[in-house]
């Protein structure tokens, strides 16, 4: 492969600086009379979706982009792939200004949106893929080789000639990915690639993204509401909230920054008075003989001692808050550096 062997590269695949995107929203009002008024005298409201964000991504990096709904993740990806015109700021992808949508640029990137499809509904997937071969001007031999490889990894070889409308969502999503990757893009923007899939399907897509990133040294930017996607795939995450970047760094750092509480698991050896337990800590789950409680980090040792002294404890463990529950809190839009 032409891009293999690149390990460390000082070149950046994506550079974003002070990026602002405003949308004009027409206010229509809830009542019919308001809507008629808005027809005569439109009231426009400017919504700032991105408030001057800056970050960069190195070649071959796999970065997770997380945040609550409406935080600006998809908007950023759409600007990076040249779909939206930025209001202000500097954007560069592979040395190109995405907005120009130059042919050479488009041939080297791909954007996969979990809910948008490019496959022709009534035709077998192979027809869409053949069309993409022509559109991306891929030589026959390369096409065949890449296609064989992709259908092999995603295990959909036998379905190539089945009309797309007869495929299940999971199978269709795999072909969407193949269609988006048949031209071997160097930069891949994935917007919720596992949305709506069952656990097996999600795992297959995840493994595939991981392999693609490794094998082709491709730069991958991924948004997902699926915590496993992020935990399994990404080392670095960028957290965006209300159009601003609130965290950019290692996923493990996010966890230590964010984990303000520790989790204590206790196995009791006898009856417990829940009321008195509740006085000294927050109970997350209780099913005799096991209790899971959370306490402030600084109070963890103290609380543990207190528990051992006053309760019939058989076993006790102190743990960090799980990665998943932290990411879940990030999605809820809770402040990260609180």
């Amino acid at each position: 492969m032409r891009r293999s062997g690149i390990k460390e590269n000082i070149n950046k695949a994506v550079v974003v600086s002070g990026l602002v995107k405003n949308f004009e929203v027409l206010e229509k009002g809830a009542r019919n009379i308001d809507r008629i008024k808005s027809l005569l005298k439109p009231k426009k409201k400017v919504v700032t979706a991105l408030k001057g964000i800056s970050f960069s991504i190195g070649k071959g990096e796999l970065v997770g982009f997380i945040g609550a709904n409406g935080a600006g993740k998809t908007t950023t990806m759409k600007i990076l792939s040249g779909l939206l015109y930025p209001t202000a700021g500097f954007v560069q992808v592979l040395g190109f200004n995405p907005w120009d949508r130059k042919r050479e640029f488009l041939k080297r990137i791909s954007l996969v949106m979990g809910q948008k499809n490019q496959l022709w509904w009534d035709l077998p997937a192979i027809d869409t893929l053949e069309l993409n071969r022509a559109i991306y001007e891929i030589p026959h031999l390369t096409f065949k080789k890449v296609l064989d490889e992709l259908v092999e990894i995603l295990d959909v070889k036998d379905l190539l000639t089945t009309p797309v409308r007869k495929l299940s969502l999971g199978q269709r999503m795999r072909f969407e990915l193949i269609a988006a990757l048949i031209h071997q893009p160097e930069v891949l923007f994935l917007d919720e690639p596992t949305i709506g899939l069952d656990v097996v399907g999600q795992q297959a897509i995840r493994d595939f993204i991981y392999q693609y990133n490794r094998k082709f040294s491709a730069t991958v930017m991924l948004t997902s509401h699926n915590m496993s996607d992020l935990v399994d795939l990404t080392k670095r995450v960028i957290v965006i909230d209300k159009g601003e970047i609130v965290f950019d760094g290692k996923l493990t750092d996010l966890i230590t920054n964010y984990a303000k509480e520790k989790i204590i698991k206790i196995y009791f050896s006898g009856d417990v008075n829940i009321g008195s337990l509740e006085k000294i800590c927050k109970i997350r789950r209780y099913a005799y003989p096991e209790a899971v409680i959370s306490v402030d980090r600084s109070l963890a040792a103290f609380t543990a001692a207190e528990l051992l002294q006053n309760f019939p404890v058989a076993d006790i463990t102190i743990e960090e808050e799980g990665i998943e529950s932290i990411v879940r809190r990030v999605f809820r839009g809770e402040a990260v550096n609180g």
């Binding site: 009534d122 035709l123 869409t128 053949e130 071969r133 022509a134 559109i135 001007e137």
Partner: peptide
């Protein structure tokens, strides 16, 4: 190559039209 691209677009479109 460009001609071929749009020829292929037309061909795929035809297949779609006679799919039913």
């Amino acid at each position: 190559l460009t001609m071929y691209k749009y020829f292929q677009v037309g061909k795929t479109s035809l297949k779609q039209e006679i799919a039913y």
